[in-house]
């Protein structure tokens, strides 16, 4: 930001790092390109090395891009904007630590948004390992940024129950049957968030964050469709394309992959400038994404040049 105030030649360490790493990658790709013209196949390990470098470099020397929300992300944002304060949103952490880098930023951003709007949040998870992920949101978002929000009143964590979609099959008619207490053993009836909530049908919005099974598809099949409950989702990029058939009739919106999360973070900061200094992990992650995409595309091009040359040679014979 301040670089334009400095004399043009005074580069920061980060700038030098950026230039150096780009030079290394570009040089390497050029070398591979020349090899390809000589019709030499690239070994797997070389590709691996390139990916490694193109992910590490932007992490050490970060670059941030701006994002604009696409309609499918905007729909989720607008839905939360439109809910009156006091509405109850269920946020299901249907992911494990392995998937977390991609979807945890979504969970954090959506939690932030709901809390600043004065909505009440019920946290649960369909993955046993999702509970630890909630702790991360609690420690990194709720406690530091919303110190006045009270557990059981503004949000509650009812945790994990085994049974995958079986759990959903129960809570579509009765929460208490599956979750007699929250994770700390507080009985259902004395949790203020559950005032007026008997089943999923009484919720104003369900958001499933995840990317595996059970996940958003199960939420649509077992809760959204049979109970007419509004459902939104934040999913790992791998699942996102499969969910398009459900949008918008069965699922009102979706954050797809880290790009979806980055778009949501941008949108949130745009509407609520007070979050300007909150962490935006997804936006930061777009740097490595971009570079790695570039490298993969370069590899596809090199691979095709190689293939076409091989074929030409084959024909000559």
């Amino acid at each position: 930001m301040t670089s334009h105030l400095m004399p043009p030649l005074a580069l920061t360490l980060v700038d030098i790092g950026r230039i150096l790493s780009l030079a290394v990658i570009a040089g390497g790709l050029l070398w591979l390109f020349l090899r390809a013209i000589k019709r030499k196949e690239v070994e797997r390990r070389v590709i691996f090395l390139f990916i490694f470098v193109s992910v590490v470099a932007p992490i050490l020397f970060p670059t941030v891009f701006q994002e604009k929300a696409t309609p499918i992300v905007k729909d989720v944002f607008d839905k939360i904007e439109s809910l009156p304060p006091g509405s109850v949103v269920l946020l299901s952490y249907d992911f494990d630590p392995a998937m977390a880098p991609e979807v945890q930023p979504m969970a954090d951003a959506i939690s932030r948004h709901c809390l600043v709007r004065g909505l009440k949040i019920i946290y649960m998870c369909l993955f046993a390992t999702g509970q630890g992920q909630f702790t991360s949101t609690l420690e990194n978002v709720i406690k530091p940024e919303f110190p006045d929000k009270v557990n059981l009143v503004d949000y509650v964590n009812i945790g994990y129950k085994a049974g995958n979609e079986g759990v959903l099959n129960v809570i579509i008619t009765d929460f208490k049957k599956m979750f007699p207490t929250d994770v700390d053993g507080v009985p259902y009836d004395s949790i203020a968030v559950f005032k007026g909530i008997r089943s999923c049908k009484d919720l104003d919005l369900v958001i499933s964050i995840g990317g595996g099974k059970p996940g958003i598809k199960e939420w649509i099949l077992f809760v959204g469709d049979p109970g007419n409950v509004p459902i939104a989702s934040g999913v790992a990029a791998v699942v996102a394309p499969l969910m398009y058939p459900y949008y918008p009739a069965q699922m009102l919106g979706m954050l797809g992959g880290i790009k979806g999360a980055a778009e949501y973070e941008s949108e949130l900061v745009h509407h609520y400038p007070q979050f300007k200094n909150s962490p935006t992990p997804a936006l930061l992650m777009m740097g490595p994404q971009t570079l790695a995409h570039l490298v993969i595309m370069a590899f596809i091009v090199i691979g095709n040049i190689l293939y076409l040359l091989e074929r030409k040679k084959g024909r000559k014979r």
Binding site: I59, A98, P101, A240, G257, I258
Partner: peptide
């Protein structure tokens, strides 16, 4: 579309 998600994991 998926490539993106996979890179995030490595990040």
């Amino acid at each position: 579309y998926t490539v993106m998600g996979r890179i995030s994991l490595l990040v």
